[in-house]
Design a protein around this nucleic acid. Structure first.
Length: 389
DNA sequence: ACCTGGTCCCGGGCTCGGTTTT
DNA sequence: AAAACCGAGCCCGGGACCAGGT
């Protein structure tokens, strides 16, 4: 965002007497182009990628870190910057006729395995990152896309480093699967596995991202608050409190900060108070998963999740919950039921066993495992009046 | 044995590029 | 050049069937 935009935001926030200048700066799913306090990890990654500066492919690398440690944030920031320097965009128009094969290009593509699950989607994502022309979204075969990708990379001067982000979450594109899909272009592509753990049987190099220490997380939250909130809208002590509570998990910390801002803003308060922070903590479940995992599911499923948080689902068996949700939507009870089971498999919601009721198998209910208020605010299927500007 | 929860899978419809026919 | 058609992936509906409890 440029300076003009920042000034405009301030002015409109002031006019509307809002304590929030820009929600995106508070969002846990938006990454900073310059990660805070991650210098050492960036250096380690640059070491691992060193060969690209000699136009060689690096060896595969695994980047691992606990939830909320910012592995995705670091990799996306680094990949954006590297692609900017070494990718196609920085080079003059390629002169294919020139002797020597033209300039060498190394593209850096981070694939979000949460959103790219099928072979088709995988090839499509790579192709649209590697080629300037638009790639069809449907109406074309997977094999066709794979052939196009091979053609695209079938020149000695072209190579790509592909990160598979979130490869080790349930129902996402696994690292081995991605390697398998890349077999036709294996000479031109190196891969980076980004997740909480290394892929099974990993023998390559690993870069570990430690959880944030308390004072580092304070810096992260303060940085976001300083650009996202109006001046003096939050006390430093409250930010410290949040950082300690989040215990090194930047996602949880940001989700709570976002929710506290939402609560204060909805209440028309002129600053975030302790009571808002209190409520915010309560709306981030224990052992919460990243809200982006809920935001990555299809729109109809997101609507089911929104209904789930707005009905009273506690202690009611799945059958009843599904019926209640299908009453509010176009979907049949059977479909909602299936969705709920699938979402539980993905880890977005959690199944909790209920006491048995007479005969039959013991029922269970489902509870959200994501920060509900953040999800409600950011979901694409949210009603307009709830959505953010 | 019987009941209900939970899993799995497939047919059909939808959208949308690409291809053939008019 | 336009229209009709085809086939791709993806999503929803729904039913068959398996698992675990009384």
């Amino acid at each position: 965002m440029n300076v003009q935009d920042r000034i405009d935001r301030r002015r409109s926030a002031r006019r509307e007497q809002s304590i929030v200048v820009d929600w995106t700066h508070l969002s846990p799913v938006v990454h900073r182009p310059e990660p805070i306090g991650r210098g050492p990890v960036l250096e380690q990654l640059l070491d691992a990628f060193e060969p690209v500066f000699d136009d060689e492919l690096p060896e595969p690398v695994a980047v691992v870190g606990p939830p909320g440690s910012g592995t995705s944030a670091i990799v996306t920031a680094l990949f954006d910057a590297l692609d900017d320097r070494l990718g196609e965009s920085s080079r003059p128009i390629e002169t294919t006729t020139r002797a020597g094969g033209g300039t060498r290009v190394t593209s850096f593509v981070a694939v979000d395995a949460r959103r790219v699950e099928s072979a088709f989607a995988f090839y499509r994502t790579l192709l649209s990152a590697l080629s300037p022309e638009p790639v069809p979204e449907s109406g074309i075969g997977t094999g066709d896309l794979r052939d196009r990708l091979r053609e695209r990379l079938d020149r000695p001067s072209r190579r790509a480093v592909v990160a598979i982000d979130h490869h080790d979450e349930p129902e996402t594109l696994g690292y081995d699967r991605a390697r398998q899909l890349l077999e036709p272009v294996t000479e031109r592509v190196s891969t980076v596995a980004v997740g909480q753990d290394e892929p099974d049987g990993w023998t390559g190099e690993t870069v570990s991202v430690p959880a944030y220490r308390h004072h580092e997380l304070v810096d992260v939250l303060t940085d976001r608050a300083s650009t996202g909130l109006a001046a003096g809208a939050v006390d430093h002590e409250l930010v410290r409190d949040l950082a300690v509570w989040a215990d090194g998990n930047a996602h949880d910390g940001l989700a709570a900060l976002f929710t506290a801002a939402r609560a204060a803003s909805d209440a028309g308060a002129d600053r975030i108070g302790a009571e808002h922070v209190q409520r915010a903590k309560a709306s981030v479940p224990e052992g919460s998963v990243n809200v982006d995992r809920a935001l990555a599911v299809s729109e109809t499923r997101q609507r089911v999740l929104l209904d789930l948080v707005s009905i009273e689902a506690r202690d009611r068996p799945i059958r009843e919950v599904a019926a209640a949700i299908s009453d509010r939507s176009e979907l049949t009870t059977g479909t909602v039921k299936r969705f709920l089971y699938e979402l539980a498999d993905r880890g977005v919601i959690e199944r909790v066993q209920l006491p048995g009721s007479g005969s039959g198998r013991r029922p269970s209910t489902v509870e959200p495992r994501f920060p509900t208020v953040v999800f409600q605010s950011l979901s694409s299927s949210t009603d307009v009046d709830m959505a953010l500007d």
